[in-house]
Design a protein around this nucleic acid. Structure first.
Lengths: 212, 212
DNA sequence: CGGCATCCTCTTTGATACTG
DNA sequence: CAGTATCAAAGAGGATGCCG
């Protein structure tokens, strides 16, 4: 194990999770705890399979990940974060907050997975009308549809489709995130290729607190 | 530039600062903004000089670091963080907080620089008696002495010695940090090799909030 | 198919030496 | 002091093979 050899808690943290891909594996497990090797592979486009297995072994040794042999009918091993691993949440949130500044430009040729939406949605979006009945926005981008629910002051995401969404947003992830974050006007997003169905008015209920 | 190619702000952040040594360079500049190449080299024991120069160039390209040609009598280039770079502070603090769990065991053969103390002192220690007149603890560990001042509810560090410190702690960094954080009793630390001069009673004024 | 292990090539790193 | 240059070792990325 390669270590910085510095008696400093930042260096110690980076000894444990500073290797390439490691924090992204933790991101996946924070988003979807208890998932399979293949799910991780799918959620981490670009990773080599040998690296994933190696990192998982290291994370297990360090006590951040626990593997659980799921009984039939699943009959496969599920990867979970330990308490220690889950406590990396503030680190990931701080990183995501800081990295948000690169999102407006980037996106050309980047891969995207729709479950990644859960992070920015929870972190930056708020329900501006908590008393109103919930509304549902179905987002079709990335690998599978996802539903954003606004209700009771909370904004949550759910994988899958909604039988009767109030609004459907379909198009590239940067367009969808631009509209949700309020950094892109819907009319401009439409010109850039975003397709919408339903009531665009529900977007006014999305309160965005993206850091400047 | 190697990138994850993922449209996710965490991945984008790691594209920018996820390389080996990069966040430790930012740590150094957060602790001592405007320092020289040699200061960085000294504050980052173990780094290869070519890596430091390469990382500094990358950080400058990404707009996190600014190099400034200092006029005589300094007559050298000084490295500063930009606003964008300084905004990594919450990331470093989250990492340091999480990594603190590795500090009690680690330390064998690790290098230590006394200016690193500023981070944990600011993050975890508080002055339990804000109304009392300030007291000064001189710590002699690592490369140079450092003075910890308790006063007005704040705990601050200052490089160098104090003419008449209330207490002097001298010995290995883990012992000093153990005593300051309250995880090690002074009597035990003394048995392990910590040398003290002055009034040990001032330690009762140190209120430690180390996360469990 | 899920969950890796192996092999091979290419890039990054670390240690050291050297220069303006 | 502030870096470049050189080179061996380690790590990453990609393809493929194996096994229940």
């Amino acid at each position: 194990m390669r270590t910085y050899g510095q008696y400093c808690s930042v260096a110690k943290a980076l000894d444990a999770v500073g290797d390439r891909w490691t924090l992204l594996i933790v991101r996946e497990l924070l988003l979807r705890d208890g998932c399979r090797y293949t799910d991780l592979l799918h959620g981490l486009p670009g990773i080599a399979t040998n690296l994933l297995s190696e990192r998982l072994r290291e994370l297990e040794e360090r006590g951040l990940v626990r593997r659980q042999a799921a009984p039939p009918p699943v009959a496969t091993t599920l990867y979970h974060l330990t308490d220690s691993g889950r406590e990396l949440d503030p680190v990931l949130r701080a990183l995501g907050r800081w990295g948000a500044r690169f999102m407006p430009e980037g996106g050309e040729g980047d891969s995207f997975r729709s479950h990644w939406l859960a992070f920015p949605v929870k972190e930056f979006l708020h329900d501006a009308d908590p008393a109103a009945p919930p509304v549902f926005i179905e987002v079709r981008t990335g690998d599978e549809p996802v539903v954003i629910e606004l209700g009771g002051g909370e904004v949550t995401t759910h994988p899958g489709s909604h039988p009767s969404p109030d609004l459907v947003l379909e198009g590239d992830a940067p367009l969808v995130l631009g509209v949700l974050s309020g950094m892109l006007r819907l009319s401009d997003a439409r010109k850039l290729g975003l397709r919408t169905t339903g009531s665009a008015a529900v977007l006014r209920r999305v309160e965005s607190r993206v850091p400047v």
